[in-house]
Every structure is written in structure tokens, then in C-alpha cells.
Design a protein around this nucleic acid. Structure first.
Lengths: 352, 352
DNA sequence: CAACGGTTGTAAACTAGTTTACTCCGGCAG
DNA sequence: CTGCCGGAGTAAACTAGTTTACAACCGTTG
């Protein structure tokens, strides 16, 4: 019956014995101008042949591919949830995300951004004429170089966990979140507190902000000391820095790690040094990644709302596409995080 | 300069002062027939204007979109690795996966497949004229109903962890893997062994096979007893079944769980019942998910090769697309798994 | 002076539809 | 008998190129 692998509108029109234009209009929903019987015949023929709209053609004609490019890291549970929020939100508008990444899983959670690769990936998306881009900026040295190009092509961009003056952004409310952590630790009685930051490269604005907001929040208290360490540019020396931090003359009774990945290093280093958690050392993480609850002891951490972050990023993009938002002025949305108290925090030993 | 948001070939041709056809041929690499100076002008103009090939047009003309649809579950670390293998392999051929899922993260690792949703997602991919499909069949009751349609459209399909007679498939070598687990437990001296299977719905052929292969492997030994339990159709009663299994009159000294998710239930139930792991109870999982190493005690488990599985599935699809494989005869590739011995297995108590 | 090879242009057909402008036909009302 | 309207068809232009056939121009040989 079908001599072509995929049925074309032409085939449907022929089967229903109507013209191509009539079939097109009827299938697009413009049924008022046609007889009931004709509509029925066309719809039936379409169903029978398994005809489906061709979004390639649609994309060429309207300039809308109903596809959003997403550049985020090889996934840990945070990014899986972000992606899930993006996916759900886009699906509601009949959009689909198309996701690319650079680096490899083996290098998680930190990895080198290779400029050439980032550029290749962003171009793969542009070649497919995506209607918008959601990204985590560390992937995109490419991003900075190509922002003017994206603007010229009118491809809206939303960035996640990165402050930007040129694109819409969604980020965790670092001031709120770090204040909660500081309150928790200070409330337990800790007065010598260490902070383990991540890589603080120019693109990792979240790490810088989280660390500095935390320092500020602790210092507002007056009588507590806080000191921060950070990973090297490759993020490859987590365990060493954690050891260094724990053996420092500060002798911290509590450590705030800017993400659960860093908290895991602190936990491991504490174990090696014979420090019991939480009796000798309290640890607070950030993100509530899937492994946080099953660490021993279960990790006290700030639970971000990754699904919500993804949802909002997708909504920003959709609003730009639909022209709901005015052409100018990038928006920044801050999402609150909540403290999940588990077993890795306790008052410091009074003997100390 | 550019009056249109995205530069067209027409603009490049005009800027380089050549005809549209010449620009097209030169940019496609057909440079032999043109002068060096002309080629330089066209390439330069293209670079300057930021022109990029339009894969929508390409797709319409050649019937190849350089895109592969992927339907896999909301990701745990196994599926993230599978996806990574797919991504890397496709990228090498300048293809991109476009991933959809059904169900939600909250229902992991088991969830209802809702037929309507599965169909909607597969159609989203078909609308974009993907060149092939990689999927995990539980997502696709849709798949079974639409296989004839896919065949007619000549869309090659590869399935993962599911035996199929109609599509290519890649799966873990269950016989090899379960024999290794059986040898490990029997070698330690266990003689009363329980097996906790997953949901054993018709689409979960891997669970059925893994459980039955394990039973067979144990029974080959002669003097050991094995008994199996399984989750309900929704996969919602893992903890209850684990409790039931541990309090059964069999009094198992070891449990093999068909995935780490189920192993986690066994661990939790053991804790509740005051059984120490591994002194009172040995547990073996399957998959080596990211949380396996940080469980307490760290879980002995079979490490699958998800990246390799993804790579092979992508390669099967690419071979079908490139016409390398003959038109008939679906292939099945089996991938070996390796035992990772951690702290959750030990010899049974001799007192017992 | 004509033929020739190397370069480049022109025009048309093609991918799968969408959309607009017009036309055509039959039946009914005035 | 004419006008009008609903229901349909026809043709063409348009999306962004790709590809083929053919023509045209140039300077250089024979």
C-alpha cells in the first residue's frame, strides 16, 4: 500500500480523494470551511496511513522547531532533577529538550571545560535550529564568546546557578540558604567553623557566592571564627584539601561544604584522622544529592529544589519565546533551599 | 548588517559575490571545480556572517536528521552511564540523541508505564523524524503496538536489557553474571540462599532471567537451597517483601538482590530485624549503582558495563542506518558483568 | 580564427508541506 | 434569469537550501 517508508500528506490527500491544500487545512484544524463528511474522510485516511506532522518542515516554515537545547553536566541527582523539571515544563508546551554535555562521567563532579568541545556542542544545537538554550555556564566558555551571536540569532538563553547580566538566570538563594546553615551551626554552639568551597573559577559564581555568603552570615554573629578553603582549578584535590582543613590550627568543630560532593571528602578525611562524626566534627553539605541520606552518618544538608529550578528555567525560555516577557532586561529568579537535619551535626564537645 | 536573525546561504553568496549554487557547492566541500580565491571568499563570508548548515533542510532533503530518539527511565547512575555511552558513540558520527522519558523521578526505580504517555512521547520523536530509536521496553507498551509502524517507516530500533525477536538488543549476560554471584556465595559456604527479584512484569524480561538464571546456578551446586521472592507489579512493596524474606522459615544466610535498589531494601529490613551485615547476613546486589559503595557496609555487587551497553546499542543503530548490517535478523549482544567484592558478604556463622 | 578547458552563472526541479489568491460548480433565493 | 454562497479545487509563492543540466565567459592553444 505505502510505497514510501513514511506517509506524506500527498498520500493522505489521495486516499481521501481531496486536494493537497484541503487535506493540509483540515488536518491543521481549519475545519469550518469544509463539509463534515470531507473532514471525516481526511481524518480517517490520515489515521489509517499513520500520517504525522513533519516538524522539520514546520520548523523551516515558522522558524520554530519546538526544541530547546540544554547544556548541563553529566548528571548527578541534582542535574537529573533539573532536567526532569525542564522536561516536564517543556512537554506541557509540546516542546522537547535536546541535551548535550561535555566532559565525561569519570570526571564528575568537576571536569575541564574544553573550549573546542563546548563550541562543537553548542553548534550541534544551533545546526538543529533550537528555539532556545538552557545552560550551566561552565560548559560554555563557548557561551561567553558566542553570546553576541546568540543575541543576533534571537535565541533566548537561560542560565542556571550562575549570575548573568545578559541572560535570564535561575539560581538557589545563596544568602537565604547559607544563613540557615550558619544559624544551625551557631545554634548548636559551634564557634570554630571551616568552609570547604569548590573550584572557584570565574564561571563558578555559585561557589564564590555560597562561600562568601556563608562567611558573612557567620561573622554577623560576632563571636565565631570562620575560615575557608577551596579546591584547585581542576577540582581534583578534594581529599587533600579536606585533610589540610581538618588539621589546621583552627581546629574546626564544624565544616560547611558548598556541595555534598565536597562534604563526602570531608567525611572521608575525618574518618582517616580518627574524628568521629558528629561527636568530634559536624558536617553540613549542600544539595541533598541522592547519596547524602545513605552516608554514615546520614548527612545534614541544604536541600535545593532542582526540579523547581529546571521548571523555572524552562518557563523563562518559554516566556521569551512566546514574547510574554519584554525584549529587554534579563531576569534573575532565586529559589529558596531548606535545611534537612540528619545525623552529621551535633553540638561540639563541651570538654573542648 | 544582518537584517534577518539567522544568516542564510543567500546572504553568504551575496557577501562573497558568487551565485547561490556556487556557495552551496563550495561550502559542501565540492571545491575542486572552483578557484582558490573564490573558495576563500565564500569561506570567509560564511565565517564572518556566522552561517551554519541547516539540519532541518538537510533532514528534509536526505531523510536523515542525524538524530536518534532515546527512551530510557528517569535516570539512576546506571542509565546515566548508558546515556553517556550512547552520547559519546553518536557524537563520533555527528549524531545527537534526543531523550524522552515517562513517569517521574519520584517513582524511581519502578513506576507505572502509562500507555497514553508512552505513545505521546514516541510520537514526539517520530514528528521530529529521528533516524532511529533506542529504548528500554517497559516504556513502550507503545513499542509493541507500534513496532509494525516503525518497521514500515524503516526506523531501526535497538532495545536495552530486554530480549526481543524483532529488534536488535543489548543486554547484560545474565547467565555469566548470576553464575559468578552463585559461585561467590557458595564459595563462602552459604547453603540457604534467598533471591529478591524485582517486578516481574512481561516487559521486565531481565528480572525474570536474572532470577531464574541465579536459581539454576545455585541448584547446579546440588546441596544448596534457594528460594525467590518478588515485588508486586508496581514495585511499591520492596521493604515488606524484604522483611518477609528475612523472617521466612528458610532463614537465609545470604540474599541476592537482582538490583542494588532491592539490595537497599534488604539492608534496611536486616537493620530493623537486628541482623548484622555481613556477620548474620550476606547481601549481594546488582548494577553497582553510585550509592552501592557508600552503603554501610559497602555493598558487594555485580558491576554492569552501562557505558559499554550504551555504546553498543548506539553502534547497532548506526550500523543499521549506514546499511552495514543486512536488512534481516535482529542481533543480540551480551555484555559481561564483573563481581565487585565489598563488605556486605562473608562466610555464614559457623555456629548456625 | 576556432576550439578548448577551467570557472562561474542561470534556471529548474526537488524535499514536505503551508498559505494566499482565485476560480469553479451547483443549488437556492430573489 | 441573475446573484450569491458554501464547498471545493488550482496554481503559485514561500521556507532554505541541494543538485543537475546547460550556458556563458575568459584566456590560451593549435
Amino acid at each position: 500500500m505505502a510505497n514510501s517508508p513514511v506517509p506524506r500528506l500527498k498520500d493522505v490527500a489521495k486516499a481521501a480523494n481531496v486536494s493537497l491544500a484541503a487535506a493540509s487545512r483540515i488536518l491543521r484544524g481549519d475545519r469550518e470551511r469544509f463539509g463534515e463528511e470531507t473532514c471525516r474522510r481526511v481524518l480517517e485516511a490520515s489515521r489509517q496511513l499513520g500520517w504525522r506532522r513533519n516538524l522539520l518542515v514546520n520548523g523551516m516554515q515558522t522558524g520554530r522547531t519546538h526544541t530547546i537545547g540544554v547544556m548541563i553536566p553529566p548528571y548527578d541527582s541534582f542535574w537529573v532533577s533539573v532536567l526532569s523539571g525542564i522536561h516536564d515544563t517543556l512537554a506541557a508546551s509540546d516542546y522537547l529538550p535536546i541535551t548535550v554535555w561535555i566532559g565525561s562521567l569519570g570526571d564528575m563532579p568537576h571536569f575541564e571545560k574544553e573550549e573546542g568541545d563546548g563550541l562543537r556542542q553548542i553548534n550541534r544545537l544551533l545546526d538543529r535550529r533550537v528555539d532556545g538554550l538552557i545552560m550551566w555556564p561552565p560548559f560554555s566558555v563557548a557561551y561567553y564568546h558566542h553570546f553576541p551571536e546568540l543575541v543576533e540569532r534571537r535565541v533566548p538563553v537561560a542560565v542556571i546557578d550562575h549570575y548573568s547580566t545578559v541572560a535570564d538566570s535561575v539560581e538557589t538563594d545563596e544568602e537565604q540558604a547559607t544563613a540557615v546553615v550558619a544559624d544551625h551551626l551557631l545554634g548548636l554552639g559551634h564557634r570554630r567553623i571551616a568552609c570547604l568551597s569548590s573550584r572557584e573559577t570565574p564561571s563558578q559564581t555559585w561557589a564564590v557566592k555560597r562561600r562568601s555568603s556563608f562567611e558573612e552570615a557567620v561573622r554577623r554573629n560576632g563571636d565565631a571564627t570562620v575560615r575557608s578553603w577551596q579546591l584547585n582549578a581542576h577540582g581534583s584535590n578534594g581529599l587533600e584539601v579536606a585533610r589540610e582543613l581538618l588539621t589546621d590550627k583552627l581546629r574546626p568543630t564544624a565544616v560547611f561544604a558548598v556541595s555534598d560532593h565536597e562534604a563526602a571528602f570531608v567525611r572521608q578525611a575525618a574518618g582517616e584522622l580518627g574524628l568521629r562524626v558528629p561527636q568530634d566534627l559536624s558536617i553540613v553539605g549542600f544539595a541533598d544529592l541522592d547519596f547524602a541520606a545513605t552516608m554514615s552518618p546520614p548527612l545534614t544538608t541544604m536541600r535545593q529544589k532542582p526540579h523547581e529550578i529546571g521548571r523555572l528555567a524552562a518557563k523563562l525560555i518559554m516566556d521569551r519565546i512566546d514574547g510574554i516577557m519584554p525584549d529587554e532586561e534579563p531576569t534573575t529568579i532565586k529559589v529558596a533551599a531548606e535545611l534537612i537535619v540528619r545525623k552529621s551535626t551535633a553540638p561540639p564537645r563541651t570538654a573542648d
